[in-house]
């Protein structure tokens, strides 16, 4: 019963972070802030959802499999976000603050 409630709390929190991540992806102004929003769905939301799911199993083989998936995701998704942001940086994309500074310099 306690496990059930805990699991529901984790799942709802996970769903909440997924939705905020999705809203951020659409509403944020530039590329880097959007990557930040998207990486929230990748990291904290999946973490919470998978913990919520593990609490619902009988802690046997399925829980171990879910744990493996969690470890794999925690390794790969931050790496993917990092590679994305770094490639954008290499490609010459500036953050919002830097673009503003550039404009100020031109104005002076």
């Amino acid at each position: 019963m306690i496990l059930e409630t805990l699991s529901i709390i984790f799942l709802v929190l996970g769903a909440f972070f997924s939705i905020t991540g999705a809203i951020g992806l659409f509403r944020f102004p530039d590329f880097f802030t959007r990557v930040h929003a998207a990486s929230i769905t990748d990291s904290i939301a999946t973490l919470l959802i998978i913990i919520g799911l593990i609490l619902r199993t009988d802690f046997g083989l399925i829980a171990v499999k879910l744990l493996f998936i969690l470890i794999f995701l925690l390794l790969t998704s931050p790496t993917a976000s990092h590679a994305l942001a770094k490639s954008a940086r290499h490609g010459g994309l500036l953050t919002m603050a830097e673009t503003r500074d550039d404009k100020n310099k031109e104005a002076h």
Binding site: F72, L75, T76, T79, H82, A83, K86, H90
Partner: peptide
Amino acid sequence: KSHLVLRVVAKLIIPL
């Protein structure tokens, strides 16, 4: 070459 993080993680997960 410059993506150090990517190289380390790739080395880690390719055997997996």
